[in-house]
Design a protein around this nucleic acid. Structure first.
Length: 735
RNA sequence: GGGCCGGUGGUGAAACUGGUAUACACGCAGGUUUUAGGAACCUGUCCCGCAAGGGGUGAAGGUUCGAGUCCUUUCCGGCCCACCA
């Protein structure tokens, strides 16, 4: 074995190239092996390049994918680009470079970075949501929704900045109601928008949660977001209100309907105006006033509420401010039945979830495949004419009227009605960022199919996704939206199952070394390229897995990275200096077996930090007992190392004389007896305090009683014995 | 206001269904080696105590032979949603 320093740069570049050339990580459609579809959220390819936060979850899942492959699974671990969206458009507006030029450049950077990290993605399946051959199918899904009446237009309040004359996404409006870029106050004004009827699926999305393995907090948040509430609709003359507390009807002293302008986020002052109208409380028969109030949400329930100041704090605040009568009462559960019997109202269900606004007035998105005809109204573009390609616009600043920048593509807008052939105009709104990311995991299965979203056979083989790993910030919107779209596709016979993801787990955020979010303005951004150059990809990989529990937010530490670097150098040095001609001792065999087994179970449980710690513990032992490690044990160690540090493992594997890749080897399995700790130490306590430690054995209780230390503390007193085999003996004095 | 997740050494953190609290690493201190720097290696490192021993997982109670882990109350921090009736 050649002596020398480990040149991580040379070695990693070599193996990355060889793996690519040999197509080591391709997933095989329809293979006889058991399939495993491992999905990670695909990124928006920003100009800043790959973030160590992306890298953290992909690297951990890469270890997962590699181990699954070694275990004999046909693993699909794909990557793609969610490249439409506001950031690209804003960046382009600032720099004057067209998004269609920026995006491919950024994608190339991301792909290169991923390969340098040794991520074992199947690059033959790469997708890009801005590719017309991709968004053709995003539009196709919209057309299917439209056909089923699940896509419709309605007047919806949107954020409008009068100073910039542009519509804003919610994210662009700060908590105080001002525009994040110009700082001027924004308004909400109604505008005709496309909506998707996700509410029609509210119950199905709730029920579906019972069939999948999501962590409890993820489930809980989905349930809360759907927010199913059972209540009643009650008529006060011609005004119908929704309430979850019909039992407080006696205290209803006013009715409130939404004000024209509700408050901006964060503003909690309550205000309103009297409409001049009175209605009758069906129970008390009293005339009560109807007010417009800014705290009434139009989307919720029927839009109107009954004000019960004696029972509800918000109603109380409003009633006090406007001197509305407050009537004390006891809630009466019997009213649920009485209201129904008297015909004043009926049981009704309300959801927090509301229909999904699917229009954006931006340039860089998928055009909505609709044509507006003066005779036929909105008409869908026939499937044969998809995709409706986004026209190339030199200037794509906001139109200034609240319309999309596409209004200015006059030639593109002017078209013929697909139904009657008359003059018509294209829809100029584009789809939101969610559109392309709703269904992307289906396209990985068959990314070049020109005739279908994906072939039936491939979908049947690969779906559903076995494990979906992503950020906590996506567990309400993205997860719910994509479940909705998938379920819809299932109902129209496109996809084979009702739920898309069998298992969902989330990861934590990586903060800067100062504990703040990484951001250019704080100067705390860690560039993965630099880490890879200085310490190597394996160091970055191990560090990102070791830095803390996978699901937890963690801060970067430069010195801890160096610790990992030292560890890997030590592994290399030990491998160089150890003479593997020796016979492995039985202890060496047992330790290696135990390590590899632990690596396997830790990966499965997503406990990557303790996995790395176990490897370190093993290497500490190895360093002290080099003479006991023979080639067989060394190979076991390298196989265990392969998922986490694939480059170093490959290098060492070849140094031992192997010609094929370590990543194509079967995952070692061991006799349970070898892995089990035979020489277990039993703890002996007196009155709950540890007084002795004895090796386990059939006579351990006997020996414990005879132990001098135990005798000393028992002092001849009467006692009883708690004996938990394999764990503990506790002698408790009877007082 | 609602929901979710946390609180363990100087730091990041371990501790499987209640059973040796602080694994692994960072940092720090001392040492060996080196022309020097760096690197590597060794020793120590929860607190009090020379020791025997005692205390200790945000705080206070409780259950238990035994609690970081379970229950009650409470304090603090982070994230998400927020006038949702």
């Amino acid at each position: 074995m050649a002596e020398g320093k480990y040149d991580h740069q040379k070695s990693e570049e070599k193996w990355a190239r060889i793996w690519q050339e040999k197509d080591l990580y391709l997933a095989v459609d329809g293979d006889k092996k058991k399939k495993f579809y491992l999905l990670v959220e695909f990124p928006y390819p920003s100009g800043a390049g790959l973030h160590v936060g992306h890298a953290r979850s992909w690297l951990a899942m890469d270890a997962y994918a590699r181990k699954k492959r070694m275990e004999g699974y046909n693993v699909l671990y794909p990557m793609g680009w969610d490249a439409f969206g506001l950031p690209a458009e804003n960046y382009a507006l600032k720099t004057g470079v067209h998004p269609s030029q920026v995006v491919p450049k950024n994608i190339a950077t991301f792909r290169k970075q991923c390969q340098a990290l040794g991520l074992s993605f199947d690059w033959s399946r790469e997708i890009d949501t801005t590719d017309p051959q991709y968004y053709k199918w995003t539009q196709w899904i919209f057309v299917q929704l439209f056909k089923k009446g699940l896509a419709y237009q309605a007047e919806v309040p949107v954020n409008w900045c009068p100073a910039c004359k542009t519509n804003l996404a919610d994210e662009e409006v700060l908590a105080n109601g001002t525009h994040e870029r110009c700082g001027k106050p924004t308004q909400r004004r109604p505008q005709k928008q496309w909506l998707l009827k996700i509410t029609a699926y509210a119950d199905k999305l709730l029920e579906g949660l019972g069939t999948v393995d999501y962590s409890e907090d993820v489930k809980r948040q989905q349930i809360n977001w759907i927010g199913k509430k059972e209540g009643m609709k009650i008529r006060f003359d011609d005004v119908e209100v929704f309430t979850t507390r019909p039992d407080t009807l006696a205290g209803a002293t006013f009715v409130a309907i939404p004000a024209e302008q509700s408050n901006q986020q964060g503003d909690k002052t309550k205000w309103g105006e009297f409409t001049g109208k009175y209605v009758t409380n069906p129970l008390t028969k009293k005339k009560i006033p109807v007010w417009r109030a800014n705290y009434v949400t139009a989307q919720y329930g029927s839009g109107a509420i009954m004000g019960v100041p004696a029972h509800d704090l918000r109603d109380l605040e409003f009633a006090t401010k406007y001197e509305i009568e407050i009537v004390e009462m006891e809630p009466d559960p019997g009213l649920w039945g009485k209201i129904e019997m008297e015909g004043w109202g009926f049981k009704a269900v309300s959801y927090h979830l509301h229909d999904w606004v699917f229009s954006r007035q931006h340039y860089w998105g998928e055009p909505i495949p609709i044509v507006h005809c003066s005779k036929c109204g909105p008409v869908m573009v026939p499937e044969s004419q998809l995709p409706v390609e986004l026209p190339y616009l030199e200037k794509y600043e906001p139109s200034g009227t609240g319309g999309s920048p596409l209004v200015k593509a006059e030639e593109w807008v002017k078209t013929k009605c697909p139904k009657c052939g008359g003059q018509a105009k294209r829809e100029t709104d584009t789809m939101p960022n969610w559109a392309g990311s709703n269904w992307y995991f289906i396209r990985y299965l068959d990314n070049k199919n020109e005739r279908k979203l994906a072939s039936k056979g491939k979908m049947k083989y690969w779906l559903p996704v076995d494990m979906y790993q992503g950020g906590a910030e996506h567990i309400t919107l993205h997860l719910l939206y994509s479940r909705f779209i998938y379920r819809f596709l299932h109902e129209i016979g496109v996809v084979p199952t009702a739920e898309p993801y069998m298992k969902r787990r989330t990861h934590g955020i990586v903060l800067g070394a100062d504990g703040r979010k990484m951001s250019k303005s704080f100067g705390n951004v860690i560039n993965p390229d630099e880490i890879v150059r200085k310490y190597g990809a394996d160091t970055l990989r191990l560090y990102e897995m070791f830095m803390g529990p996978f699901g937890q937010t963690v801060a970067w530490s430069d010195t801890a990275v160096e610790g990992i670097y030292r560890f890997l150098k030590r592994v290399w040095r030990l491998a160089q200096s150890s003479k593997f001609k020796v016979q492995s001792s039985s202890e060496a065999k047992r330790r290696a077996a135990r390590l590899v087994t632990k690596i396997g179970t830790d990966i499965e449980a997503l406990k990557f930090n303790t996995m790395v710690a176990a490897a370190m513990e093993y290497v500490n032992w190895w360093q002290e007992h080099q003479g006991k490690v023979g080639q067989d044990v060394m190979e076991d160690f390298i196989l265990g190392l392969a998922p986490m540090a694939p480059f170093l493992a490959e290098e060492l594997w070849h140094k031992l004389g192997h010609k094929d890749s370590v990543h194509m080897q079967p995952w070692p399995e061991y006799d349970a007896r070898l892995v089990a700790d035979e020489r277990k130490i039993m703890v002996v306590q007196v009155n709950g305090k540890v007084r002795d430690r004895l090796e386990n054995g059939p006579d351990v209780q006997q020996r414990a009683r005879q132990s001098d230390k135990v005798k000393k503390y028992l002092g001849g007193a009467k006692y009883r014995t708690i004996y938990v085999p394999g764990k503990i003996i506790n002698f408790v004095c009877l007082t």
